[in-house]
Nucleic acid binder design. Sequence first.
DNA 1: ACCGAATCTCAGAGCAACCTCAGAGAGCGG
DNA 2: CCGCTCTCTGAGGTTGCTCTGAGATTCGGT
Lengths: 222, 222
Amino acid sequence: MDLDARRVLLVEDDRRLSELLVRLLTVESYDVLPVFDGQAGLHHGLTGRWDALVIDRTLPAMEGVDLVRRLRSRGITTPIMLLTARGTTEDRVEGLDAGAEDYVVKPFDSDELLARLRALLRRHADTSTMIDLGGRRLDVATRRVLSPDAEPVELSAQECALLRVIAANPGRVRTREELHRRVFQNADSPNAVDTYVYYLRRKLGHGMIRTVRGLGYRLGPS
Amino acid sequence: MDLDARRVLLVEDDRRLSELLVRLLTVESYDVLPVFDGQAGLHHGLTGRWDALVIDRTLPAMEGVDLVRRLRSRGITTPIMLLTARGTTEDRVEGLDAGAEDYVVKPFDSDELLARLRALLRRHADTSTMIDLGGRRLDVATRRVLSPDAEPVELSAQECALLRVIAANPGRVRTREELHRRVFQNADSPNAVDTYVYYLRRKLGHGMIRTVRGLGYRLGPS
DNA sequence: ACCGAATCTCAGAGCAACCTCAGAGAGCGG
DNA sequence: CCGCTCTCTGAGGTTGCTCTGAGATTCGGT
């Protein structure tokens, strides 16, 4: 089995639907483990390492929403997609209180489910990142710089993107050309990088981003 | 009458069955109000505060399923148990689709009904209706925002649903797309989210919901 | 110390994202 | 039937972000 494959835990009691989903996901080269009740879902959800959980709302022995709640209360942060037969606003909202990230109403379109799952995984990979800034941290999901002893600093989209590239490998020097290419794709003025470095310094202080004259910029004090 | 007692609204047109159920529930120290048609059920369901509703499926003036649907569409989240003479799968599904939590087929065993009712109440109590908003609280059941030093603020169904999603994971940013999909399923204009954020801010002040430009919205100041 | 080049600083135009709000339509209650 | 609230739409108005360009400042080499 593909070692790089995304690992998905499927909790679905309806055997036919389960089988269908397993086939669907396997074809898309996911690595799927199907279980058929909440108890098994809880066990595998807690012990295994998964990239996503797909959970039916109506299960024997334990409601899907309860399962989600229990997993969350045990500190599991893996993205969860709920499947449901019901589709009222109240129901859609209720899943969220427990901590599910997405909600698909049966009967669903296969392509839609796959698209949602991809979005879920991408979003999680994109946003679960806390980038270390040496003492402070960049939270990409909320675009904020968090400090242990100060208020969070909010960044704009471009400021965040720039800082993210510079902070990806601490100590490494990034050239203006590289930064311009990766962050300011459609900017004509090469000065844009300078300007945004200026903005970041104004918000975060001058110790964070250092200039290496003639080369570019790098992170940190050392 | 016991102030701590669980308040149950019973909507049942058959006088003999109604009386039987009232006696049964009263003995178990529930606080029961019997009404005998859908109109009265709707009125009391909307205006009173109940821990559970027990509704017969066949009623004069309004079908039980319709009553459930109407109550749900008005944002009532109180758990509902349906009573029915029919027992086909189709009937069951229809009742659940309307938003009922449980379904008991007549003639039923008294102990079974009581057990089901207890389970219903316990399950509902687990899913706490209070959501923390950082200083204030959202009571989902009554759709009110409660403040320690101010009058409660009443929210409409959609306002409440939106706030609930945003407040589900504090600090997390919810995209417009996500909010639109979950709360405004039947809306064509993506602007609906903006509008309801505007309404909420007008009612709750501008500090509660923050915009993260280009991403979405999130809760609270920190 | 001087000069050119690299870099910093900052005001402002342009624009997309966002906010605001009036109003139409649906549904309910009187 | 009328008035009410709730919901959603669409049309501006406004805000904040992005990028530009031009002057000020710093740096390294001589």
